[in-house]
Each structure stands twice: as structure tokens, then as C-alpha cells.
Design a protein around this nucleic acid. Structure first.
Lengths: 342, 342
DNA sequence: GGGGTTCTTGACAGCGCTTTCAAAATCTGC
DNA sequence: GCAGATTTTGAAAGCGCTGTCAAGAACCCC
């Protein structure tokens, strides 16, 4: 099998012109059945594979969709990327990823890379690139943003406040009154929203909001651990924790475990996101499900649609409480749960 | 800012020829300082960004490195992909990913996509595409495989048998005699190796190998849970479990938790891989660390080196036991641990 | 100041494919 | 069987960039 079989090679082999071969491949025009056959045979025989770069150059598009995530290895983005991948399967588009690492400059660099690679569409997940920049990009290609809401752009995402409300509400319904919140970084809109939902739930139940029960983390496990340490250090009393994401809930759980505080026996724990691993966490984590896979999927479908000139408003995605085993009724006795490691 | 600023636009603006602009951009030849200045200013003024597809077509390379993983959302591959991404940062290469989903046909499809996109190099992680196919590809571009060992190709990976040996050995040293093994799918070479390491450790300690203590899983959480159920159902007696990967260990842990069997108090648990979440598992999981990030990083560096004509043998990567809190000394009393859920 | 070097530069031919455009082939209906 | 309408087909001009090549500019030494 020769190295670089080109379309002209096929044409020569089949005894037709390159144009005809192109037409057969793309079905862009009707071609005599016999010639078509000859072309297909030649393709087969030579093992021809079209050069997508040449095709892209000629067509002025790359058949490529850029996806900006913040951290490719994060389980949260992993699900979304999988969704994107699934949605693009079977189409002639292929995703290409770049990470912003939660830093505007790196995000901008990621965008530059993708634009330089002539992506035909863009999916931006979270991040802090200025709105104007995204709007500018949207003038030259379809842009869908996930997890942020930007007027003038197609945005996908759940109602974070609502989700947080439900998570907190669940704890309240179990009888908890002193519910701590491990908040996400307050530079993230979604973290702010979740804090808001938490407060709204307290309010709705006539419970006071106690700033001493709130600690800000950074959405990563260690900060959840530290948050619990901080709460304990400051002598805060609580019987439940609502963490702004699962990863911090994991960290919190370890801190409690180390102290011999049992979940959910002593303290109930609710997360947010429902990472794939959360149902196999011990105890299986009660959490607010954010449908990452669906979000990625929808985002990609929407970009594809826009690329074809259709526009539509995707059905809204809902955050849904998933009750597992990390939450329990407040123990009636009201026994102080704080006991030293034995 | 105009839509598609091309190199010729820059040339016109700067009052030089396209060739000169190209030379300035790529530093391929010496250019008069004044003209260079003019070009740079023009680039700035027009907001010019080179079209990488055109560049690629002209140069016969795409500045792109294909990465075949099995499942992009898996935490295990996540780490490796991050490593690849990091290694490529700052170079002019960019990774493009495709997933094989552990199926030879999908893997082949992924390879086709990547080859069609003219990737300049290839990193293949695990999978079951025939050796010959990879060797064939290696004739036209650098290929590095991770997690498989193929004669004639640069391969990266840890010694799975050795890792499993150490994990098992650790349990033996803690006094455990009846150690169950949740094996990986025996269609995967690494799973076979890990089982081998487990057996070798038993042998080395003069312990009998009991097939009744081995259950085969599929590397995913549910299979770990099912494996423990199966062990219990068949009345197997064990005081420790060595799981062939962390995800199955997670599942096993849930099964034990549900039965009220405490880890590590009643049963010690060792995993394999050391996923990022394992140190925040409860209890933090003792596991055999497979340096995913480094593996991805090394693979990418190696491809880059090959691309530049250098070849080298990367320093071997070692599996390393990480002792955390899911393993403990066998309780001296020898008390039967199997107790029904109360 | 002229012949010979060495640098710098622009014209131009691709890279592999698509896509007009107009010529060639085929098909109408009478 | 022929004028006209309709397909099918190939030639050729790009897409935006690189890289060769040879011409032009700048330099050297005697």
C-alpha cells in the first residue's frame, strides 16, 4: 500500500478526472453508475483516505469542533467531554479539546489555539474569559457555552440555586437545623448561586443563616477536608453539611472519618454534581445531580444544528436530588455528635 | 477586525511579498530588520492568525498528535491525557483525542479518524488493535504505546505483575492469609499480569492459591461490588481483598459497607492505579500507584523526540505501593469477621 | 571601479481537495 | 433525425501557506 494516495491517484487509476472522484466521494453530484463503480474500486484498491486538511482548506472549514474545558482530567468535565464525543459520533465532525485551568489567560490561549486550528464551532465550559470575547467569536462561528449564562449566546446549564435549594431542603426535611455549607470559590457564578440556594432553603424553613457555618473552598477535595477542619476548629456545631460539589464532599468525608465522626450516623452529607464515582463512594453520596453527559451532548448537538443553520432552544436541564446513603434523619436524642477520636 | 486575514493581506499591508511574511513568522531566513518590523506591525494591526490547516497542508504535517484512549471520561485516562496535554504545552503540537471503548472495531475507527486528520504522531493507550496494524502505522509516523508491550514499538508502562506482587505482599506482611483477588478482565494483558503478581506473592509466602478467592471483574465499580457479593455468596472466607484496580476496589468497599463489614477493621482492601480520588476515598485507599500523569507526559515527550529524529529510551516507570488507611494488621484474635447485617 | 561573493527578496509552483464553468454527452419531443 | 433542453464530465482556478529558485541588492577585495 503506497504512502500517500491522493485523490488524483485514484482518478488516474479509475480513468476519470479528479473532479469526478470528488463527486463520488462527497455525493455532490450525479455520476454515471459505471464510473462510480470504477472510482469506488480504485479507492478500495489503493486504500485511499482523503486528506482532511486539504479538504478543510478547500472548503474553508475543518470539520472540527473546539471544546474549552477547564481541566481535562477532572471527572466533572470528563462526563461532559464524553457527552460531546457521543453526540459527534457518526457525524463528520470531531472534537478538539483545550484546557483553560480556570485562568483567563490560559483560557484565552486555548481559544487562540482552537481558532488557529479553524474549528467550525466552539463549546466553552465554564471559565472566565470575558463575555465580549465570546460574543466576538460568536460572530464568526457557532458558540455554545455551558455553565455560564451570557446574554446573546446559546447557554446550557442547570439552575444552580434551585439545585442547592433542594439539597439543603432535603437535609432540613430530615430534621437538620444546623447545616454547614462548604461553598465553592465565590469567583464562580455557579458557586455563588449554590450559596444562594442554600440560604434560600434555610430562609424558607425559617432557619437563621449563620456565617460561621459557611466555609469557602475551591471545588477540590483538599479544600473540603480543610473546610471541615476549619469548622471544627472554630467550634461550629452542625449535624449536616451541604457541600457545593462532590469533590469537596469527598474531602469533608475524609476529615469526618479521621475524627471518628460517622456519616450519616453523626453527620449527614450532601454533595453537588453527582460524579460517576459518587454512587460508589462510602457511604454512597446523596447529591444534587448535574447531568454532565447530557450537557455535553446537548451542547454538541446544538453546535451541529447551528452549523446547519437550524437554531433551537434545547430543553432545559434540571438539577435533581439523588438520595443515597450519606444522609439520615437527625437522631432524635439530639446527642452532641462531637466526640474526640477514641 | 476583518474576518479572515491571510498572510497575503499582511504582505500587502506591510508592503512586502508573502514569502517574506512567511519567513518572518517562521524565522526560516534572515530578513531585513526594517521589513521584519513592518511585518510584525502589520500582523498586529490586522490581528492576523495563521491558518494551521493551510500551513499543515503546505508542510505535509498537521502539528497534531493523535491519542487513542479507551474512555475519555475514565479517571484513569484523564490523568494520562492531562500528562499528554502538559507535555505538549508550549510546543506547536496539539493533541487530538479519540476513544476506542475497549472494542477493536471502534479503536480501528478512532485510528482511521486520526490518520485522516493527518496526525504527525500517535499515542495508543491500551486497547486491542492488532499489533501488525500498529506496526504498519509506525512505518509512517512515530507511534508510542502505553500499557501494552509490542516488540518493535516504543512502549511505556509499569510492571503490572510487580505492582500486584507488592500490593499482595503488603497484605501478607500485615498478617493476612486469606486474601481474595478481584481480577480484571482476563482479556487484558495487564489484568493477567496483576493476577500473576498476586499469585507470585502468595507463592512467595508459602500460601496456597485458592481459586475460590478469585473473581473476575471488568475494571468498573459495579463489578467490584458484584465480586464481593459473589465471594460472600459462595461462603468464601477472607480477611483482605486485593482488587486489580481502584474502581473495583470502590465497588468492593460499598458491598462491604452495606454488609456492615468495616474496612480496614474487618477486611483490608488494596486497589491498583491510585486514581486521584483514591486518597480522598473513605477510608483513604491503600493502592498500587500507577503514575498516569507521568506516563502520558513521557509518551508525549517521546513522540516529540521521535518527530525530531531523536530516539531515546525513557526511564522505566515503576508501580509503587501507597499505604493509606484501608489496610490494617490482621486482628490477632482471629475473630471471624463475617457477621450479618444487624 | 569592476569582478566576484554573499544576502535578501519576490515570483511561482505546489500541498490535496473542492467547485465553478463551459464543453461534451445524453436525452427530449416532434 | 434534428434542434433544444438536460445531464454528466473535465479543465482550471483557487483555499492559505511553504519553499525553491533565480534575480536584485549589498558587500568584498584588489
Amino acid at each position: 500500500m503506497r504512502e500517500n494516495v491522493t485523490l488524483s491517484d485514484v482518478a488516474r487509476e479509475a480513468g476519470v478526472s479528479p473532479s469526478t472522484v470528488s463527486r463520488v466521494i462527497n455525493g455532490t453530484a450525479r455520476v454515471d453508475a459505471r464510473k462510480r463503480e470504477a472510482v469506488l474500486r480504485a479507492i478500495e484498491r489503493l486504500g485511499y483516505r482523503p486528506n482532511l486538511m486539504a479538504k478543510g482548506l478547500a472548503q474553508g472549514r475543518s470539520l472540527t469542533i473546539g471544546v474549552v474545558t477547564q481541566e481535562i482530567s477532572s471527572p466533572y468535565y470528563g462526563e461532559m467531554l464524553k457527552g460531546v464525543e457521543q453526540a459527534l459520533e457518526g457525524t463528520s465532525y470531531h472534537p478538539i479539546f483545550a484546557s483553560g485551568h480556570w485562568r483567563a489567560d490560559q483560557e484565552e490561549a486555548a481559544l487562540k489555539v482552537l481558532v488557529g486550528r479553524q474549528v467550525d464551532g466552539l463549546i466553552v465550559m465554564d471559565g472566565s474569559v470575558p463575555q465580549e470575547r465570546l460574543l466576538e467569536l460568536a460572530q464568526s462561528m457557532p458558540v455554545v457555552v455551558v455553565g455560564r449564562s451570557i446574554p446573546g449566546l446559546r447557554c446550557l446549564g442547570i439552575d444552580n440555586a434551585q439545585g442547592a435549594y433542594e439539597g439543603t431542603r432535603h437535609l432540613i426535611e430530615l430534621g437538620h437545623r444546623r447545616i454547614a455549607h462548604i461553598a465553592g470559590p465565590q469567583s464562580h457564578p455557579d458557586a455563588i448561586e449554590r450559596l444562594r440556594g442554600y440560604r434560600k432553603a434555610l430562609e424558607g424553613a425559617g432557619l437563621p443563616f449563620d456565617p460561621a457555618l459557611v466555609v469557602e473552598g475551591d471545588y477540590l477535595e483538599p479544600s473540603g477536608l480543610l473546610a471541615v477542619e476549619a469548622l471544627l476548629a472554630r467550634g461550629a456545631l452542625f449535624t449536616a453539611i451541604f457541600a457545593a460539589n462532590d469533590q469537596m464532599a469527598y474531602g469533608a468525608n475524609v476529615a469526618l472519618y479521621r475524627r471518628g465522626i460517622r456519616v450519616p450516623h453523626d453527620v449527614s452529607l450532601v454533595g453537588f454534581d453527582d460524579l460517576p464515582s459518587s454512587s460508589y463512594f462510602t457511604p454512597p453520596l446523596t447529591t444534587v445531580r448535574q447531568p454532565g453527559l447530557e450537557m455535553g451532548w446537548e451542547a454538541a448537538r446544538l453546535v451541529l444544528a447551528l452549523l446547519e443553520g437550524h437554531d433551537y432552544t434545547p430543553k432545559p436541564l434540571a438539577a435533581r436530588l439523588v438520595v443515597r446513603e450519606s444522609t439520615a434523619l437527625l437522631r432524635s436524642s439530639g446527642v452532641r455528635w462531637v466526640h474526640p477520636v477514641d
